[in-house]
Simulated assay, not measured.
Amino acid sequence: MREQTGTVVEGFVPVIDMSARDTAAGRASIAAAIGAACARSGFFVIVGHGVPTELTARMCATTRAFFALPDTEKDRVAHRPGVSGFRRMGGATAHSIGKKTPPDLCEVFSAHVTGDLPAHERAQLGDYWASWQLANVWPTTPADFAPTWQEYLTAMSDLAGTLMRLFALALGLPEHHFDAVFDRHVSSIAVNYYYPQLDAPLPGQLRRGEHTDWGSLTILYQDTSIGGLQVLQDTEWRAVPTIPDGFVVNIGDLMALWTAGRWVSTMHRVVNPERGNTSSRLSIPFFYLPDHDAPLDPIGAFAGTEPPETFGTTTAGQWISRKMQQTFAKDPRQHG
């Protein structure tokens, strides 16, 4: 049985058209809509974003082709000490909020914008374990996998930078306020392949367990209309619709902290399909992460106010590293 059906509520996850972003008036209007969404649910969908449909289609096609390979082929680029790549199990995401569950029902391939840097440069990205210190390991099949992913990483980095400038306007800050803490960003993609569920899940087991995201913002592309993504408001899980050519955007813990709780980092999850539905699903989240040493203190008009929670760390990198290690605590090989 599907654990709980989400209710689609009009306006809870609004669709925001970014087509007018090239004018000051257009950016102000878009920023106002974003600010309202971030204060309400922390989730919205963007269209008119400028990312070519051809690129997202190619990204989905080459990634699906990789996940369709035999296990022996995928294991050639397995995530292991020193490198970031394929994971047969996607960890247990709910562990990051202290909830004990079985492993999530997905396979994952991950890569970082820093993963193709020389080893000595990656080693300078924090004096603690961090996934962005790992080297990307690219499969040779499909042949266009690496160049497509690298092109997509660049497109998402550019789009995320635009969104952060709109975030600044929405918060009454100078448009380029956040640029300085993203000039060496350590962002990543961790594509989830939700394979067909031929066997019944264990009790409490989901495609992705409930969690908040840890960074500044996430840009998510979904390759089908099957759905499964749900957002928690109060005690009700609400379904996030799939919009053709749209990206789901949500803010993470860092934005909630930087705004002293004015903007919310909302709990979400990916539920299982109904029993008997053996379709698969691909989701492509891009996690826009700031410089590893970015401070956690509230910003702008929120400076000096109490954060929404005590993170127990002093930099963005330390916070994200701790959450990552909680997620994969049962498999120390995942920590590189």
Score class of each variant (00 low, 15 high):
Val108Ala: 06
Ser110Val: 06
Val113Glu: 14
Gly115Gln: 01
Asp116Tyr: 07
Ala119Tyr: 00
His120Gly: 09
Ala123Met: 06
Gln124Gly: 14
Gly126His: 06
Gly126Arg: 05
Asp127Val: 10
Trp129Asp: 14
Ala130Phe: 12
Leu134Ser: 08
Ala135Pro: 00
Asn136Arg: 08
Pro139Thr: 00
Thr140Ser: 09
Thr141Gln: 09
Pro142Gly: 10
Ala143Gly: 05
Ala143Asp: 08
Ala143Val: 06
Pro147Phe: 08
Pro147Trp: 07
Pro147Leu: 07
Trp149Asn: 08
Trp149Cys: 10
Gln150Ser: 13
Gln150His: 03
Gln150Pro: 09
Tyr152Leu: 15
Leu153Tyr: 01
Leu153Ser: 02
Thr154Lys: 12
Met156Asp: 03
Met156Cys: 11
Met156Ile: 00
Ser157Pro: 09
Ser157Tyr: 14
Ser157Lys: 13
Gly161Asp: 06
Thr162Asp: 13
Leu163Gln: 03
Leu169Thr: 00
Leu171Gln: 02
Leu171Asn: 03
Leu171Asp: 07
Gly172Asp: 04
Gly172Phe: 01
Gly172Gln: 00
Gly172Arg: 03
Leu173Asn: 03
Leu173Asp: 05
His177Ala: 13
His177Asn: 10
Phe178Ile: 04
Asp179Val: 05
Asp179Cys: 02
Asp179Tyr: 02
Val181Tyr: 11
Val181Glu: 12
Asp183Tyr: 02
Asp183Met: 09
Arg184Asp: 14
